[in-house]
Design a binder for these strands. Structure first.
Lengths: 187, 187
DNA sequence: ATTTTAACTAATCAATCGATTAGTTTTAGG
DNA sequence: CCTAAAACTAATCGATTGATTAGTTAAAAT
């Protein structure tokens, strides 16, 4: 029998995720990853195949962490205030420990635009659809609303959450708070 | 006397700008630039010094083009409708010819975050301040407004225009239009 | 016509990229 | 104890990066 892996895959993915989150995909080299993950390039390859797959695993881990935020949103879906609470939670997640890393998924969409890798794009799109569903549910909560207006509001919120992800990298907390307050003032 | 330059600097900067706009700074290599600009790497160096300076020139050219959009905003600053018109013009500029390139300045802020080059950051910040001033002017137009609310609205619009720049890369025109309409419905 | 100057071309520099190879160490089964 | 299998280390692969060098060409001034 061979020796055991001397590292925990979940742990090294977490470190990779932080690096990708901080620097983006292209600007994070395998050597940086190797150093930060504490394992050498060959081990990265052995565990994850290649850089893209490591990124995919990092993205999935990120998504699972953000899923905890989404879970609260799902559990207390009581209308527009729930959406607003989610916006605040998402903004906090995008600037945790005041690291100004934004949102890894928004960062990735911004880095690749529409020429995104198919698998990476699928992970992100899946999250987007989930979000749309929750926005819909909460916008309809206790309110009669025509489908045209509903769709406009959903589109509004989708773009807004993207803007908020970007803002997590470059804006201070006051700007972000003011944005959320103004957004929900008259929604 | 030596021979004349066989290329027009303004023309080659324009081509460089398009490439940076499309691909971002890091993903645009000097070889890609050389090919697209129709001059070789040495000539790029001779005219612009290095990649960063070429990017700076591209950014300034971009800004001057966007300045035409801003000029209209300055000339017809008649309140919130003027801001809304600017939003539409900015969105159109960020997706001209349906190229989904977004806004070069927003793209650059997203690429570098707060670790942006000092000179590059200065060019972008300067534009941001101009924008803030125009938002302020139009929000105050024909309306009494307390300074606290005014600042919140300005912050709201600043984040919103960034989100719109990002959306120009990844969202369809309907989402963008819905966002603008919703944004100004109750402002 | 010769000289001078800079624009030009092509080749190449060291550094870094993602990925891989060759060879060593560890560990459990036989 | 010996062997087999895989985790490991270190070195290096070809390709590409930004930048630069050496040498050639063109054109105005003398």
């Amino acid at each position: 029998m061979p020796r055991e892996k001397q590292y925990n895959e979940a742990e090294v993915i977490e470190r990779a995720m932080v690096l990708f989150w901080k620097n983006g995909y292209k600007s994070t080299s395998l050597r940086m990853l190797s150093k930060e993950m504490g394992i050498n390039q060959f081990s990265i390859n052995a565990s994850f195949g290649n850089k893209k797959n490591l990124f995919l695993e990092s993205l999935k881990l990120y998504k699972s962490k953000l899923q905890q935020v989404l879970k609260k949103f799902e559990d207390s879906s009581n209308g527009k205030d729930s959406i607003k609470n989610f916006f605040y939670a998402f903004a906090a997640f995008s600037n945790q420990d005041n690291n100004k890393r934004g949102c890894l998924m928004v960062n990735t969409m911004s880095e690749f635009g529409l020429e995104i890798d198919e698998q990476v794009g699928a992970v992100i799109s899946n999250y987007g659809e989930k979000l749309r569903g929750l926005f819909k549910k909460n916008l309809e909560f206790n309110t009669a609303i025509d489908s045209v207006t509903l769709n406009k509001q959903i589109n509004f919120l989708v773009l807004a959450i993207g803007g908020l992800g970007l803002a997590g990298k470059i804006q201070n907390n006051t700007v972000i708070e003011d944005y959320i307050e103004m957004t929900f003032k008259n929604l």
